[in-house]
Amino acid sequence: MGADLTPAPGPGKVSRRESCLFHVSNLKRTGMPPVSLSLSAGELVCLSGPSGAGKTLLLRALADLDVNQGEVSLDGVSREQLTPMAWRSQVGYLPAESRWWGSTVAEHFERVDTQQLSSLGFDTAVSDWRVERLSSGERQRLALARLLANRPRVLLLDEPTANLDPVNIHRAEQLVKDYLAEQRAACLWVTHTREQIARIADRELDLDVTGLHEGKAA
């Protein structure tokens, strides 16, 4: 289901008329209306809607963290054919609030991509930083980097720039856009900010109690 789009200016934009990468059909779970959607490779889709409509519940179901029914497939392979670990590595969910279990930043990374970290405004010393001394904005940016280190094919981002200042919002947006272009990945990005949707979205979806609707074109 390729989106019709007017190519927005800026680097990292590529043609998005591609075959469907991530397909969701009749996904059902408690607290959310049934949902069907498709994401193409390289596509960034913004998800908005009133709070309580189930945006976070939708992302959790897509990452298969809660009990849910329906068909979800990645690259034509249904999730039942993959182990839960493989599924969640490839369908990467970034919750609104990040959690850290080790004492230093490096303990949380599969591999440290210094280029990625520097594009988020960190230098190499960040690996040794103590987690408990991170600000909420640093946590949010590092959580994004931690997720991308897995090289997921689909990104499910729950308000990933909510705690960031304008400079870092721009950095995070650019990093995700570059990542999608390089890895041919797709992204579902929950946000409430109209300006952000206008800046980054190839397409917009709106979730309310009745279901998922195509939003106004970005």
Binding site: A63, L65, P84, M85, A86, R88, S89, Q90, G92, Y93, L94, P95, E97, S98, R99, W100, W101, E110, R146, L147, N150
Partner: peptide, 10 residues
């Protein structure tokens, strides 16, 4: 939340 944060990362 911490347990699920790790599950989310595969």
């Amino acid at each position: 939340d911490t347990i699920e944060a790790r599950l989310m990362l595969g």
